[in-house]
Design a protein around this nucleic acid. Structure first.
Lengths: 246, 246
DNA sequence: CTAATTTATGGTGAATTTTACCATAATATT
DNA sequence: AATATTATGGTAAAATTCACCATAAATTAG
């Protein structure tokens, strides 16, 4: 928390790897793409197996280098669209990793081009997401709790994204970006449980709290899913939600 | 909230300014440096007047370009240390702005070097902060509500940082990074009022809530400040705070 | 010196929210 | 027809928030 008085020391006077010439960068965008399998209650993240060095044959987050004339967010959408086809998603910037030598291609002594990674965080609708990258053996959903050692600092980025996802879910309506247009209250509950852990809240209290927020519209339509009383289908009312914020 | 089906269209097929060659970047770091003048109850941000084009004579956030071998955070500390001398501060990364043509130096048609801005957010102890940049007419604290039109997209970065500051104050103990080692409960209250607005909470209730959190140690020492009953000096107990988190 | 003013502190009780349950309804399964 | 399962709409206790108040201990005003 406290930053100690080292602040006024000049790094360039102590670290022989720092000189006053400016660094030249290529900028990469790495996406942490989450989805929730509501059938099996699993939180998934999309990984790709690298074909080239560095980290050949390691799994990694989908990434790309930013092209001339392309914005960071465009690059994030592009890499996403190259790997999966999906219509409903939420996407926002996560964090920028840019320490020197994060990429082994950057030799420690030579001051060549550096690689910066701007990470984005996405949540997509699992049911409609179609993996389109080839070969299929090189792309896969992994359960977040079962991801292996990844390339670069991607485990760190993933962990950061996972924290962001949990926070976002608690105070913003991103769940309704990836739920179907019409859903039951139990659908919402299952999604929250899958992301936040089994025992995050009592179902009955969760329902009451959700309805009290006032932005879920009961369509009146009932659906039966296996045993039990049929459940009402609800819709998210984005306008009502906006009005709440003011 | 919803991202519409434009996602699977290739930007490069529609935007003539995009081609498949990679962009080359210089990376800048821009700091939003806040402090709270507890005497006058003003929330301040540090601005510099630019000497060169683009935006010559505009006020701007302190920024620098990242050097070879220098991490992003090192660059943030360096630019801060060049402008002010301070021992107590909080610093974290804010957001990365990197759309094409954010810098007028980037000609719209030529695909020359692009400039990326990684912004950092800092809160420093106002009383000990000493401005060291010269000439003094080119550096100044501005009240956040009185900031003029700034260079680049710096007004946007400032607004983003201001939101982050308000959020951070509500759920993390950054206030104690810039308060003196020993402080009264009123000191804390004034800081919160200055940042979050006059009527954010009742003083008596704020006190009760703060003490109930259990990480403020009463030193027993009393101080008199003008009229009124003397106040107790408290210390922030970082260890007790950590224990709360588990 | 005395009274008024000012600030700190530690309350109260009402209103609201959270929490742990429970009862019933309406379906599928046995 | 009985049982199991899920949805729904409750309850009441516990905890928290909120508006407000009383007293203590200092300075300041008269």
């Amino acid at each position: 928390m406290k930053c100690k008085p080292t602040i006024n020391t000049e790094p360039s006077e102590r670290n022989p790897l720092v000189n006053k010439a400016l660094a030249n960068f290529k900028v990469g965008v790495d996406n942490v793409i989450f989805s929730v399998d509501t059938q099996l209650n699993r939180l998934l993240v999309l990984l790709l197996k690298r074909k080239e060095e560095p980290f050949a044959n390691y799994w990694s987050l989908p990434g790309t280098l930013v092209r001339q004339g392309e914005s960071l967010q465009d690059a994030a959408y592009r890499i996403l669209a190259e790997k999966i086809r999906v219509n409903n998603l939420y996407l926002e910037q996560l964090y920028t990793f840019g320490g020197p030598r994060r990429d082994p291609r950057e030799a420690p002594e030579s001051f060549g081009v550096r690689y910066l990674s701007v990470s984005y965080f996405a949540l997509v609708r699992y049911e409609e997401a179609e993996l389109i990258a080839r070969p299929v053996s090189n792309i896969s959903w992994y359960q977040v709790k079962e991801v292996p050692k990844l390339a670069f600092e991607h485990n760190q980025i993933l962990e950061y994204g996972y924290q962001r996802l949990k926070n976002k879910l608690e105070y913003s309506p991103i769940a309704f970006d990836v739920l179907p247009e019409e859903f039951t209250l139990n659908d919402v509950y299952q999604l929250y449980c899958t992301v936040l852990g089994e025992n995050f809240a009592d179902y009955s209290n969760f329902r009451a709290r959700l309805l009290k927020l006032g932005f879920l519209l009961d369509t009146g339509v009932k659906v039966c899913r296996g045993a039990g009383r049929p459940a009402s289908l609800y819709r998210f009312d984005a306008k009502a939600f906006q009005d709440k914020l003011i």
